[in-house]
């Protein structure tokens, strides 16, 4: 009984595997939206700074067709992006790969923003301290003025 249960489970798993493969092969052809979703993550290898999904050249049409073919073959988005990177280099990826030298692209901007925030915070703190320690300009002016008025009145008295 136990043995037959094992055999049945095995047959079920194998049939699932085949069904998956058959589904991948016989599924409906990829739509333009599906192709463009992948193409949007790639740049034209020939024209500078043109996303592959909007590139109007014949070469780009060929590359989009290639994406369509690969999707129809059951290739995942990650596999297609890897294929394009292997063929044409990392420069065709809209999002740089998270490896090696490319980490700088991800780490540098937040690091610079953080450093800028620290500098700004410290500078603002220093300016606030200076303002708090400095004498009140209104008081200083009125004190000067009183002194001047007193001297003026004294001189007037002397002349009288």
């Amino acid at each position: 009984m136990k043995k037959s249960l094992y055999i049945l489970s095995f047959v079920f798993l194998v049939s699932l595997l085949f069904a998956g493969a058959a589904f991948a092969q016989s599924s409906t052809p990829p739509t333009d939206d599906q192709v463009n979703a992948v193409a949007h993550k790639l740049y034209c290898p020939v024209c500078e700074s043109t996303p592959l999904d909007v590139c109007p050249t014949d070469a780009c049409k060929d590359w989009r067709e290639q994406i369509r073919t690969m999707l129809a073959e059951g290739k995942s988005e990650a596999e297609i992006l890897t294929y394009f990177e292997d063929q044409y280099g990392a420069r065709v990826l809209a999002e740089p790969p998270k490896k090696g030298f490319y980490w700088l692209v991800y780490l540098l901007p937040p690091a610079l923003i953080l450093a800028g925030a620290v500098i700004l915070f410290r500078s603002m703190k220093a300016w606030t301290t200076v303002k708090a320690d400095a004498p009140n300009p209104v008081e200083a002016t009125s004190a000067k003025k009183d002194d001047y008025v007193a001297r003026l009145e004294e001189e007037l008295k002397k002349q009288k």
Binding site: I119, R122, A126, D133
Partner: peptide, 10 residues
């Protein structure tokens, strides 16, 4: 005079 700007360590 009050200290201004960024410290030497920074």
């Amino acid at each position: 005079p009050p200290k201004r700007g960024v410290s030497l360590t920074a």
